[in-house]
Write a protein that binds this DNA or RNA. Structure first.
Lengths: 240, 240
DNA sequence: ACCTGAACACCGTTCAAGT
DNA sequence: ACCTGAACACCGTTCAAGT
């Protein structure tokens, strides 16, 4: 749905052979590295195995030979991107720790569209993610969440990265926000529909300031993050 | 990614013609209704235009003729499913109103895999969704959220339906949870890694009680919902 | 080992031609 | 109007054959 411009490889003349061109053999590392670059440029769903092969100057079967099927390449890319997310210092208070991980994670993941979705659906499959999980739950245990620590960890990271996934995919539907904005904008100042009138005020900002869209996305992300943290904090207040 | 068994139409012998079989002409309504059924059976990404055409005993071009391209069919299906979500009575307190909409929405959306994702990304494009938005924001205004009403509405529905979207897609990766569970399970009782040890306790429940997975998903959904509501409630407590 | 080249079974969309 | 039938430009995967 909505994947317009998938990368299919350069349109230049098809080379005859890697060996004939004097290029060294392709390695699994080369394949994954190229897939990471393509993901940065076009998103995780924005390239094809055939396009990746063309970029490497090989036939599609070579990708399968070195790494495996598309699923295997996607997993390798995801794990590499996850490795780029900075892990906060574990002496931070829990609220600061999760703010740092969420904001830092968003900064990395937004650069690789589609990876956040993959992450929320199948989880980080890479071993290097385990220390982060240990640190995060450890911080919650230290700060008094007791048996809630593990579910709260899942809840907070879900909240942050699911929203990043939606932000990613919304860029593939650039007209969606304008359409919704127009639909609600008609109710601006409608006294009979106060709810829609309030929504129209919000929607008007999307339309009138398209350049500031990134800032508004960031602001809503921060809002979501603060709400999620408050929701977790409520578990401490009640002493439960 | 991970869409294994897409519906491609029955394997029975290809009929020669609708008219020859004495069937009436297909209408746009027929096309959308069939697409809704296929979405219930296989999810929004689980059928193809060709499979839909086969189910209707017509050629693929007929779908384009009556409804449009795949995007148009998907939008029509989404709007129809959204229409099935029950709207809570608007005299409910805000917390009860959003609990009812979230739980009822989840019940409907989980029956049409992939629709929740579409909904969180592009929003409800159907006019019939506007009264729900008006009611929801109206309830928040009435209960004292002031200028926070519109973003809180978006935050609460996002939280609920993004999680439904993840639940939907996780069913396409049935092994993901087991893999994560196994990875973390190794740290059960590890005194050096208290965070992972706590995660392992959770993970153990996923592995040992696969039959209760649906109940655990429901429990985590309720947990998420309560946290999100608490997060919103915090805006009232501070008087801000 | 690594790669070529082709084949296979699919996609969504488009379009002239029929009825 | 509605549908047929085919064509077009793609997919991911597989595999025998070459070097």
């Amino acid at each position: 749905v909505g994947v317009a411009g998938r990368y299919r490889g350069a349109v230049t003349a098809r080379r005859r052979s890697r060996a004939a061109a004097g290029k060294p053999p392709v390695t699994a590392e080369d394949v994954v590295a190229a897939a990471v670059v393509l993901t940065r440029e076009h998103g995780l769903d924005g390239w094809t195995i055939r396009g990746l092969a063309t970029r490497l100057d090989v036939w599609p079967a070579v990708v399968a030979h070195h790494v495996g099927d598309r699923e295997a390449v996607v997993e390798a890319v995801t794990d590499r991107v996850v490795g780029e997310v900075p892990v906060p210092a574990d002496d931070l208070p829990w609220r600061d720790w999760f703010t740092a991980l969420s904001v830092g994670g968003r900064r990395v993941l937004r650069g690789y569209r589609g990876v956040a979705r993959r992450l929320t659906v199948v989880g980080p499959t890479v071993p290097s993610a385990l220390p982060t999980i240990d640190a995060g739950i450890g911080v919650l245990l230290r700060d008094g969440f007791g048996p809630h620590a593990a579910p709260v960890y899942r809840y907070l990271l879900n909240s942050a990265f699911m929203l990043v996934a939606v932000e990613d995919e919304r860029t593939a539907f650039p007209t969606a926000r304008a359409t919704m904005g127009a639909a609600m904008g008609r109710f601006g100042g409608d006294g009979d529909r106060p709810g829609l009138a309030a929504a129209a005020v919000e929607a008007a900002r999307w339309r009138t300031d398209p350049a500031g869209l990134a800032e508004q996305d960031e602001a809503f992300f921060r809002f979501t993050l603060e709400r999620a943290l408050d929701g977790a904090a409520a578990l401490l207040d009640t002493g439960q």
